[in-house]
């Protein structure tokens, strides 16, 4: 049995928040660089600005985007570890410290409807726990801004829906997202599960590395088709037109009820900030 101290989790989460806010994942950066060669005019110019932004953020320690987001964590707990302390508190303490010490924007309001008063430390984080074999604690963190999150959508299809119906729904969500969700996007799609699980799957899909397609050939084919079709929408960088509207499209699927077919679309902006750490 491996013992992991709460303070070590706090420390790891703190560092992850600061790094994720300032440093684009290398696969996202590479995808943006590659996309530049395929573009022209204003789209190419905007892509160059995106690369410049990433460089300034990393080398001079300015957050990539002022909306340093909601901290969302996927935590996989191995069966052979013992966590000394309260893991949820440890994670939230890490978020508090990371947002304070990293000069990140605190964007969480305590009451969503009436008072909307800021908690001033960006907590509570949104944490999804899962369990696995082994002696590792795997923590994945996403910092998700509201501009793209607000464009997310979920639909409970009937199983009679065609693949084309599902594609149309996803393409419509991407078109509706448009300029205010900061394209080019990374599009996370959750299919199956149930109402709440499909949304969680769509979020989890955003953790995937660019070009790391689904292991199931049918879903990988759908991901590739959707990427091609999204890039034909002419949304382009910042919604000003162009042939690159998405950097990646990722589907996560799970079993579901025989009478259901839930589909969720969770959109990420081009500043697709995520990071993984294993303790």
């Amino acid at each position: 049995m491996k013992i992991i101290e709460a303070k070590d989790i706090t420390n790891a989460v703190k560092k992850m928040c600061i790094k994720a806010a300032h440093e684009l994942p290398s696969d996202v950066l590479l995808a943006i660089k590659k996309s530049q060669t395929k573009q022209k005019g204003i789209a190419k110019h905007l892509t160059a600005l995106m690369l410049e932004n990433a460089k300034i953020a990393k080398t001079e320690m300015y957050p990539l985007c002022q909306d340093t987001g909601t901290a969302i964590l996927f935590v996989e707990i191995g069966s052979e570890i013992f966590i000394k302390g309260n893991i949820t508190k440890a994670i939230n303490d890490g978020v508090k410290q990371g947002y304070k010490e990293g000069y990140l924007r605190k964007s969480i309001v305590k009451d969503p409807l009436f008072k909307r008063k800021n908690t001033n430390d960006n907590t509570p984080a949104i944490i999804h726990y899962s369990f696995a074999e082994g002696n590792k604690l795997k923590i994945s963190l996403l910092l998700k801004g509201a501009g793209s999150e607000n464009k997310s959508i979920l639909k409970m299809f009937a199983p009679s829906a065609s693949i084309q119906d599902i594609k149309d729904f996803i393409l419509s969500a991407v078109r509706t997202a448009g300029a205010s969700a900061c394209p080019p996007f990374v599009v996370g799609i959750g299919i199956g599960g149930n109402f709440e699980r499909s949304a969680q799957l769509a979020k989890k899909a955003l953790l995937r590395k660019i070009n790391n397609f689904n292991k199931n050939k049918l879903y990988a084919g759908l991901e590739k088709d959707l990427l091609k079709e999204i890039n034909k929408t002419n949304i382009g960088p910042q919604g000003l037109g162009g042939n690159i509207s998405a950097l990646g499209v990722f589907i996560e699927q799970e079993p579901c009820h025989t009478a259901s077919l839930p589909v969720s679309v969770n959109i990420s902006c081009h500043v697709s900030r995520h990071i993984k750490e294993v303790l």
Binding site: C65, Q66, Y103, L104, G147
Partner: peptide, 22 residues
């Protein structure tokens, strides 16, 4: 339309891009 991140010591401003106008 903008809400900046806090200003780090030595910087003139925090990060400060636009937010959704709509």
């Amino acid at each position: 339309y903008m809400g900046p991140s806090p200003t780090r010591p030595g910087h003139k401003s925090g990060s400060c891009g636009p937010t959704t106008s709509a």
